[in-house]
């Protein structure tokens, strides 16, 4: 059953999605399909709607029109469907959003224990496994503020993984970091992609996009302007808007 659902449906399917903030339209009739196991990088100028796009996918922002479904689960306004979708999709934020009063280990076990009712020792073991995967298991007893920004973001990745999602959403995971810490976080994300997890990443790190992405998406003014495999995207951009954006960012 579960397998059949995943077989039949794309990881994410959006059709005609609109999103408004008051009068301001952040997303305009967005159509997008993301295949299982696909690595998608989304870029675009600030205010282009790229963050809104992935925040809509796990219902941090309710969408105003159109349909979104995640692994075949239609996202409605009801709490049940929102919870189901959030179980499928983990989220990593620009500002890490770690819980400052909990240790690294507690940060990771909090959601499995409270929302899945997992026993403490099981949750601890799970958390240690994922902390090890982002190479930070030795910091498990520290508090977030005792870690560098790069370390904190890796913890945030492990925390999201502890809910064992099938899709990972990254909202500008390196934008709040000092330059020397960007590399370690991108490497951690890159390592995750090796085992076939679906990934959507909003980022301006073009080298990372080239290495990792199956497909790149360029958004501007709430619309998807261009979508292409990484090679074509960077070397043979079609639309003048993307050309202008790349010229700006690669300068």
């Amino acid at each position: 059953m579960e397998f059949a659902r995943l077989e039949r449906h794309p990881a994410v399917a959006m059709a005609g999605v609109d999103k408004f903030y008051g009068k301001y339209q952040a997303l305009r009739a967005v159509d997008l399909e993301i295949q299982r196991g696909e690595k998608l990088v989304v870029c675009g100028p600030s205010g282009s709607g790229k963050s809104t796009l992935i925040r809509c996918i796990n219902a941090l922002e309710p969408h105003d029109a159109g349909t979104i479904s995640v692994n075949g689960i239609a996202l409605g306004r009801d709490r049940a469907s929102i919870l189901d979708v959030r179980r499928e999709a983990g989220m990593v934020f620009q500002q890490f959003n770690l819980f400052p009063h909990m240790t690294i280990l507690e940060n990771c076990t909090f959601a499995p224990r409270t929302s899945l009712g997992m026993a403490r020792d099981k949750a601890d073991a799970l958390a240690m496994r994922y902390l090890a995967r982002v190479h930070i298991a030795d910091q498990a007893q520290k508090f977030p503020a005792q870690l560098s920004g790069g370390q904190q973001q890796r913890v945030a990745i492990a925390r999201a993984l502890c809910m064992e999602p099938r899709i990972m959403l990254f909202d500008e995971p390196t934008s709040a970091l000092d330059p020397e810490m960007v590399g370690e976080v991108l490497r951690a994300i890159e390592e995750l992609t090796a085992d076939g997890m679906t990934m959507v990443c909003v980022t301006h790190e073009m080298g990372f996009a080239r290495r990792v992405a199956d497909r790149c998406l360029f958004m501007d003014q709430g619309e998807i302007v261009e979508a292409a495999p990484a090679g074509d995207f960077f070397d043979r951009p079609k639309s003048p808007r993307l050309r202008a954006f790349l010229a700006q960012i690669l300068k």
Partner: peptide, 27 residues
């Protein structure tokens, strides 16, 4: 209390009760 703390709980499907008692109110 920063908005991100609420959002992190939402994204992690932390139940409301635990969000308030363990995350928001202590901070």
């Amino acid at each position: 209390v920063p908005r991100g703390q609420f959002e992190a709980c939402e994204a992690l499907s932390v139940p409301r009760r635990h969000m308030w008692l363990s995350v928001v109110l202590p901070q």
